[in-house]
Design a protein around this nucleic acid. Structure first.
Lengths: 322, 322
DNA sequence: GTGAAAGCGCTAACAT
DNA sequence: ATGTTAGCGCTTTCAC
């Protein structure tokens, strides 16, 4: 009987309970969550859309979010979108069809264009700058200002020619990073031309390739300025790992020849050689906030959406020259 | 009507089909996968149990497996167990209750003890040494022999005193790695005592701590042998990252002062400084084999289980001295 | 080629 | 305090 398993909404005599539990054990009964979900209207699951589990930033985010929801009795279904609009929509449809109770999207590509269009009735939380729109909550880093602060730190060390390694150009996070770099450079009267910017795959290999382009004596910075940048602002920790490796291959010392600052602040950043100076997002905090807010909206569909921007925190390593 | 959406098992007149598709668009109809699963008996989902998404080895494994199943129209539900038996069992119950069509377990803790006990009717695939038992397939690295081969490579470079950094001692993979190291050392007449072994958390921090223990002049190797090991065999790439970092902190050069070889062969290993020599598992191959085999068993419940051992492939970097 | 209806395993609202 | 049953939204069998 349903009431015994769920400590049901109505009382059960201890003798009956024992009898039922007996039968459960004897028959090897397993509850069927599918049937329960169909009837009860809740799956106790939420969908999480992330670009790539191999990027340590998203790996940490996934683990933190999973932990938060798991503690609250929810299962997190994770879909990897690889920055592809098609995959993102496929997973979104799949999650909605599976009746997740809520949806969290990080670095989403398509949501910006058609928020309301195909969203289903579930509450949605975006972990980026989200377009103004009803029924979509957002928790986002202050990408522009954080990037500017990171660049400013390099400027304080005396650097003027600071190269910039970005991720995929069409992501709002990336354009905000680049804008932060550019505005901070302009504010300091330092060079901010496109020859100093290189977009690349958000991976070690991508960061490596981009750094090669910016630092080698065949690169465009050298061609236009007669020398290489003395510092790099890198849009993610993974790419920074690749950038440090590029310096190693080119025989450039970090930070003596090239200073590096990156965005992310993952655990990975603490174990590079030298340790990275990195703009840290408090992922645990984001995850806690995300879980408690989204579940509030799950429970009470009329609850207000949330719009929150979080400032990062520059963790000082040795890669900046400090 | 059901037949139009599924190109159903029975034909539909084009005129009817159009009429139905019209209604679908007009009413904003979304299929309910829950109801479909309850009726149809298949959820088109499989459960994946991994210890930790932040470990790049499991991140790569997760992405490869997800991709394989996604291509075949299956959703992968991932649960992170953090090497905890309790979490592992919770997720297993949750997956079974949700009627996954199959289950993949990597680095499982509890499965060894009670395979058949609570498994549900779904086919199970273990990505480790699995105990002999019906209805459990397994695809496993040749942990012992691969470890021995890695150690032998260090011996070929002339190293005799080779330290060993292991992961969590109670995992079968780990005991196999340690045994491989020990047997290879004994075969070469080289030291293989417990003072050269350090177990640690499978993370950068864990590898760092373990390496400090083995390499510092307060460490037990030094106390017993009067000098530090000249090389380290490390059980995972993440730990090797931490070990390299420890060398950096101790002022030891890799590979001149300390040579390092690790197990894993992840992408991470290619971007350390210097690049790691690492025993690579072909994760893409494992994922393909896992998906095709498991789905065979999903489709035909009477299909044979699979028991496969895969030999690793030593990828030469610079950390070994080559 | 199409319509109608049974039933998957639960939960909650009806009974008693 | 317990027994019984309608119905969640699909798929599939049965009847036409």
């Amino acid at each position: 009987m349903s009431y015994v398993l769920n400590n049901g909404p109505r009382p059960v005599a201890p003798e009956t309970r024992a009898r039922v539990e007996d039968a459960i054990a004897k028959l090897g009964y397993r509850p069927n969550a599918i049937a329960s979900a169909l009837r009860g209207g809740t799956t106790r699951s939420i969908g999480l859309l992330l670009p790539d589990p191999r990027n340590p930033y998203y790996a940490e985010l996934a683990q933190a979010i999973e932990q938060q929801f798991s503690e609250r009795g929810y299962l997190v279904l994770t879909g990897s979108t690889y920055y592809s609009r098609i995959l993102e929509e496929q997973y979104r449809e799949s999650f909605i069809a599976r009746k997740v109770d809520g949806l969290i999207v990080s670095s989403g590509v398509s949501l910006a264009h058609e928020q309301a269009l195909g969203l289903g009735e579930q509450p949605v939380l975006v972990l980026d700058d989200a377009p103004e729109s009803v029924n979509v909550s957002s928790i986002a880093p202050q990408n522009h200002d954080d990037a500017a602060a990171a660049v400013e730190h390099l400027q304080r060390h005396g650097h003027r020619m600071i190269g910039c390694i970005g991720g995929l150009a069409y992501l709002s996070t990336e354009s905000a990073h680049i804008a932060g770099w550019r505005n901070q450079q302009i504010a300091a009267g330092a060079p901010a031309g496109d020859e100093l910017v290189s977009f690349a795959d958000p991976s070690e290999a991508g960061g490596n390739a981009a750094a090669q382009l910016l630092l080698s004596d065949h690169g465009r910075p050298w061609a236009l300025h007669g020398h290489r940048p003395s510092a790099l602002f890198v849009s993610s920790d993974v790419q920074a790992v690749g950038a440090i490796f590029a310096c190693y291959e080119l025989g450039l010392r970090v930070p003596e020849d090239i200073a590096i600052v990156s965005m992310g602040g993952t655990k990975t950043a603490a174990f590079t050689i030298p340790p990275l100076t990195s703009m840290r997002q408090d992922i645990q905090f984001i995850a806690r906030l995300a879980a408690s807010h989204l579940l509030d909206r799950v429970v009470d569909a009329s609850a207000n959406t949330l719009r929150r921007r979080l400032r990062g925190n520059l963790v000082i390593g040795h890669s900046c020259g400090c």
